[in-house]
Nucleic acid binder design. Sequence first.
RNA 1: AGGGGUGUGGCCAAGCGGUAAGGCACAAGACUUUGACUCUUGCAUUCGUAGGUUCAAAUCCUGCCACCCCUGCCA
Length: 556
Amino acid sequence: MKTVEPINFIEEKINEDLKNGRFNCVQTRHPPEPSGYLHIGHVRNIILNYGTAERYGGVCNLRYDDTNPLKESTEFVNSIQNDVMWLGYHWHEIHYATEYFQQNYEIAVKLIKEGKAYVCDLSPEELSKYRGTLTEPGKESPYRNRSVEENLELFEGMKQGKYPAGSRCLRAKIDMASPNINMRDPVIYRIQYAEHHRIGRSWNIYPSYDFSHPLDDCLEGVTHSICGPEFEDHRPLYDWVVENSGLKNKSRQIEYTNLYLSGTILGKRNIKKLVNDGIVSGFDDPRLYTVAGLRRRGVLPESLKNFVYATGLSKVNTAVVDRAFLDYYIRETLNQKARRVMAVLDPVKLVITNYEGEDEEIFTEDFPQIEGNTEKHAHYFGREIVVERSDFLKEPIPKFFRLFVGNEVRLKGAYIIKCTGFDEDENGKVTTIYATYDKDTKSGTEGANRKVKGTIHWVNPKHAYKVTCRLFENLVAEEDSESVEKNEAETDGVRINPNSKTELTECYVEKLNYNMDERYQFVRNGYFTLDPDTTADNLVFNRTITLKDSFKMPTL
RNA sequence: AGGGGUGUGGCCAAGCGGUAAGGCACAAGACUUUGACUCUUGCAUUCGUAGGUUCAAAUCCUGCCACCCCUGCCA
């Protein structure tokens, strides 16, 4: 087995194992518990497991860690598979921890026979007391030294459902005085009468994670079991189980650190709460950093992968990656793939006062960033068009070179116009802008060489689609925003932005054959994707992300 | 004497005894029929802290400090 150039400390460890002969191949597993939707934090784990196996020419299995029927469901099983496929990873096989229950059980019996496990009758409360504290050692259970026969009989009784849940459990006999609490005779089997989403009620006893996980790894042929940092001090227990299982394949657990993203709410529990409280519309709400939400927003899987690789892996447990970093990778990909489209999101009417006659068809072909794009885009210039409200200012401010009375600006792909005036309503809101156009400056002609500072986009409503755009604000309140003052909702110390709702607005986009699979850059507005809910007569776009805007309005 | 981890610029992050890579963010400038993109430049005399070893330390040693995880019959 050849080693590969390591890109992180995990691969360094793998190379060690390959070099000293502990393993001669690499097999990993992706072990989600089907108790929630995958989010961007899980993406790193997925990339690590599938990606590492891939790099070493090994395989990675998808294995549902479904040892707790109380929290799991088929809905989550399906969503996980869907998300992994969307990310572009391929599992070798799909397994369920429940497939190994018989083998787990037999190994538990073997442990009992060897005097390494016993049935304990302590109640959960008592068990907790006997466990000791962080600073004090635990006390041995009075049931610790039962005979092998009695243990065997009791365990069999548990399996047959003779005792109520919580009345007894099977514990590994390790060391009640261990400074590592996980080693103080951990519970490895508990009684649970519940409908399991996959195996129904066929088992009355369920192995705990600490017991089944290492076993399943070994059984499946996993060489490297890559998991989160919270299992670091479970490793001695993992090794204990592996060692005492009698299994030949001895898997190795390697921990990595979690991914935290600033200004986001992650964690299955938190996301569920947002969904249940109705703060978001579902697990695929585009404001959520779930894989489903990100996908609906129009983020591409390769952006996510590039982002994860770029953040690297260290063991710094306090690392919080800035959200701007993710944004950068989203834009980077989209910039190469998005089709440029003229659109006006917040329209205000603009009248070309010296334009006469029929609307004029304008062809442009200046979208060179799009691969293989030979199509001509037809625009219709005319007397009445719409432009973006934010491209006009009643009172110009320094360094602003878009529309204001007296200023010239180019309408992208068309003519240079000069703003001559505007109307406003009683509230001071601009209702109409007036301008004249210079007919010698049409794009593509000699006269077009004249330079003006600003270029704005525009749409002729008579020849455009009226569409719906979903815009939204970040779910998490900015640190220093005023909205934080009167926040009502709070999830685990993270302040929810009370203004965060998905807003549907009526906008105009130029006529094109829109394709569900394509990304669009609404020129000067950001990147958009068609929403799955879109219909033939109502196009719904989701804003993926805004463009960078280096023009800053001065703060007064 | 609880155990296990981690500390490099605003945010990630290389570095593994030879005199602080890179990216994001930010700032300035160039280019531009998207103020996008692209390009150019700037941005840690210092690596949690205090000592020690050395010709030489972010890298080795010692003490201290800070933060994260662990007291589910969850994973």
